[in-house]
Amino acid sequence: MSSAAEKAFEELKETVGRVTVDNPKMQAKNVDVFYGDKQAIFDVTCDIGKNEVIAMIGPSGCGKSTFLRCMNRMNDTIPSCRVGGDILLEGDSLYSSSVDPVMLRARVGMVFQKPNPFAKSIYDNVAYGPRIHGLANNRAELDDIVESSLQRAGLFDEVKDRLNAPGTSLSGGQQQRLCIARTIAVNPEVILMDEPCSALDPIATARIEELIDELRENYAIAIVTHSMQQAARVSQRTAYFHLGKLVEVGETKTIFTNPTHELTENYITGRFG
């Protein structure tokens, strides 16, 4: 980082750009995250709108994944992790004592960096969520959920003849679509995606990106990505993170063509990252 950029980062007090939206699904307010004594996220405020895809970009270690994991309380599984500030889902705080993480994660689903199908059949992978949450009343309903989820994930035609094959027998791209199908089978309101394409080849990536665009109709989606091109392709808004701070948020087009902050510009133009 050049010394000028360093200075700009030091001086950064407030996120540049409009952090709120008119029709928010989730709202993060002044979020701080600590791992033990180390602070990973500094005072991040940002909304996620209904039916929009927001991309979170930034150099590695900038805290974008950590921030994402706060939004369905996946960080609860890490004992030393502490979250300050507040995150609201439809106006209700996620971290209030009345909110149940199980309940929350059913509403805010997550797709991970590495495809992580369970050691079960394709069918059972998709049926897992509906089963544990008791979403289907009988086998026929469950079949319907599985089929429609696989269809919406664009995987059904490829696997319909081998629903009983193990999930791990699929290719990497198919596995990731299986994980997406597994997530939408629970019918969440928000889907968080943590670099969903980083382990995939370009063709599989294109397929997933198409899928994300289709899913936008029904869900609010937050996607962390390493690839600026991907962010530009799939998102409506983009948030740029740097060393745990949210530097700039704005319309994707604006961010990529005319960034306001110096750091954002440096990153977009490839001076570091």
């Binding site: 309940m103 059913a106 509403r107 949450h133 008791g134 629970v186 019918n187 969440p188």
Partner: peptide, 17 residues
């Protein structure tokens, strides 16, 4: 549809915990 999920999950919670 999403409300439906919420209801059903809520109904199952006590037993699951």
């Amino acid at each position: 549809m999403s409300n439906n999920t919420t209801e059903k999950v809520r109904a199952s919670l006590q037993k699951r915990y």
